[in-house]
């Protein structure tokens, strides 16, 4: 019980920290996802979806947002991460938001896809240094690493990708121990 309350408070605090003056007036709708512990605003949910989409964008096939990879990120963070890791993730998430604003003068949501992707790449390369308050830790990496890893897992494990691209078949009906591949074997054959 105590642990739950504590987690809620952290969620609220981290969320609260993100309600910067410039954000007020943005999406105020509650998040669509229902979580057990973390409290996520609709604005945060939307922002995470945009970041996931920048990471794996829609092309002729859906991107991360459409396959709801960001929801997988949130469910995993909510249920499968230690409190400390959750806290750092949310703090780093807020730091990323502030950092892109400091860099471009615009919020992430208002940046072009190009700008968003450049920014993510720069985080990845360690080129972004967030402005930190006294005693505040740099949590960009503690956010970005699980964010990227989980987005990829959520995307690859989504129904669309598993069925349409990798040919997932729940009922193969048989097992063949030896399948010889040739230069023109398709993905479904390769993945067996």
């Amino acid at each position: 019980m105590q642990r739950r309350t504590a987690l809620k408070q952290i969620g609220i605090l981290a969320g609260g920290a993100m309600l910067l003056p410039s954000c007020i007036g943005k999406t105020t709708a509650p998040a669509a996802i229902s979580l057990n512990k973390l409290v996520i605003s609709g604005q945060q949910e939307n922002l995470l979806a945009l970041m996931a989409e920048a990471l794996i964008p829609k092309t002729d096939t859906p991107g991360a947002r459409e396959v709801k990879a960001h929801h997988f990120v949130l469910h995993m963070l909510d249920d499968c991460y230690e409190m400390d890791a959750q806290q750092k993730f949310l703090s780093g998430f807020a730091q990323a938001q502030q950092a892109i604003e400091a860099k471009t003068g615009k919020e992430f949501e208002d940046c072009s896809l190009q700008e968003q992707q450049t920014f993510l790449k720069e985080i990845e390369e360690g080129k972004i240094v967030p402005q930190l308050k006294a005693g505040e830790e740099n949590n960009l990496e503690a956010f970005y690493k699980p964010f990227k890893g989980l987005t990829i897992r959520g995307y690859l494990g989504s129904e669309y990708i598993m069925t349409n691209i990798f040919g997932y078949n729940m009922i193969p009906g048989k097992f063949q121990g030896v399948v010889e591949l040739s230069a023109d074997s398709d993905l479904k054959t390769i993945l067996g």
């Binding site: 193969p172 009906g173 048989k174 097992f175 063949q176 121990g177 030896v178 399948v179 591949l181």
Partner: peptide
Amino acid sequence: ENFTKYGNR
């Protein structure tokens, strides 16, 4: 390298 399997065992 040019061998794999089909289905699950």
